[in-house]
Lab assay of single mutants.
Amino acid sequence: MTFKLIINGKTLKGETTTEAVDAATAEKVFKQYFNDNGIDGEWTYDDATKTFTITE
Rank of each mutant, 00 (worst) to 15 (best):
M1I: 14
M1A: 09
M1L: 13
T2L: 12
T2H: 06
T2G: 03
T2Q: 10
F3A: 01
F3G: 01
F3M: 01
F3E: 01
F3D: 01
K4R: 12
K4C: 08
K4T: 13
L5E: 01
L5I: 06
L5Q: 01
L5W: 02
L5K: 01
I6E: 03
I6D: 02
I6R: 05
I6Q: 04
I7M: 08
I7Q: 02
I7N: 02
N8P: 03
N8W: 09
N8F: 09
N8S: 07
N8T: 07
G9C: 15
G9F: 15
K10A: 12
K10R: 10
K10H: 14
T11F: 10
T11S: 10
L12M: 11
L12E: 09
L12S: 12
L12Y: 15
L12T: 10
K13A: 09
K13C: 14
K13R: 11
K13G: 08
K13E: 06
K13M: 10
G14Y: 15
G14Q: 14
G14I: 15
G14C: 15
E15S: 08
E15H: 06
E15Y: 10
E15N: 04
T16Q: 13
T16L: 15
T16C: 14
T16N: 06
T16V: 11
T17C: 11
T17S: 11
T17E: 07
T17I: 07
T18Q: 04
E19W: 15
E19V: 15
E19G: 03
E19Y: 13
A20F: 04
A20I: 02
A20N: 03
V21Q: 11
V21G: 06
D22N: 07
D22H: 02
D22R: 01
D22A: 02
A23R: 09
A23S: 09
A23W: 11
A24Q: 11
A24G: 09
A24C: 09
A24F: 10
A24T: 08
A24M: 10
A24V: 10
T25H: 14
T25N: 08
T25L: 05
T25G: 08
T25M: 13
A26P: 00
A26Q: 01
A26G: 01
E27H: 09
E27N: 04
E27P: 00
K28H: 09
K28A: 12
K28N: 08
K28C: 07
K28I: 11
K28R: 11
V29F: 14
V29G: 03
V29T: 08
F30N: 00
F30Q: 00
K31F: 06
Q32M: 09
Y33N: 04
Y33I: 07
F34L: 15
F34T: 15
F34W: 13
N35K: 15
N35M: 13
N35A: 15
N35E: 15
D36P: 07
D36W: 07
D36I: 10
D36V: 10
D36K: 09
N37H: 13
N37A: 14
N37F: 15
N37L: 15
N37W: 15
G38A: 12
G38W: 14
G38Y: 12
G38V: 14
I39H: 04
I39Q: 04
I39K: 04
I39D: 04
D40H: 14
D40E: 13
D40C: 11
D40Q: 15
G41H: 10
E42H: 11
E42K: 07
E42F: 10
W43I: 10
W43L: 15
W43H: 01
W43G: 00
W43R: 00
W43D: 00
W43N: 00
W43A: 02
T44H: 10
T44F: 10
Y45R: 00
Y45P: 00
Y45G: 00
D46A: 02
D46H: 05
D46G: 00
D46V: 04
D46N: 09
D46K: 02
D46R: 02
D47R: 06
A48V: 10
A48I: 10
A48R: 10
A48K: 09
A48D: 12
T49H: 04
T49D: 03
T49L: 06
T49A: 06
K50S: 05
K50A: 05
T51K: 01
T51P: 00
T51Y: 01
T51E: 03
T51F: 01
T51N: 01
F52K: 00
F52Y: 04
F52S: 00
T53S: 04
T53N: 03
T53G: 02
T53K: 04
T53F: 07
T53W: 06
T53M: 06
T53R: 04
I54P: 01
I54M: 13
I54N: 01
I54C: 07
I54A: 06
T55G: 05
T55M: 05
T55S: 06
T55R: 05
E56V: 14
E56T: 06
E56A: 06
E56Q: 08
E56G: 04
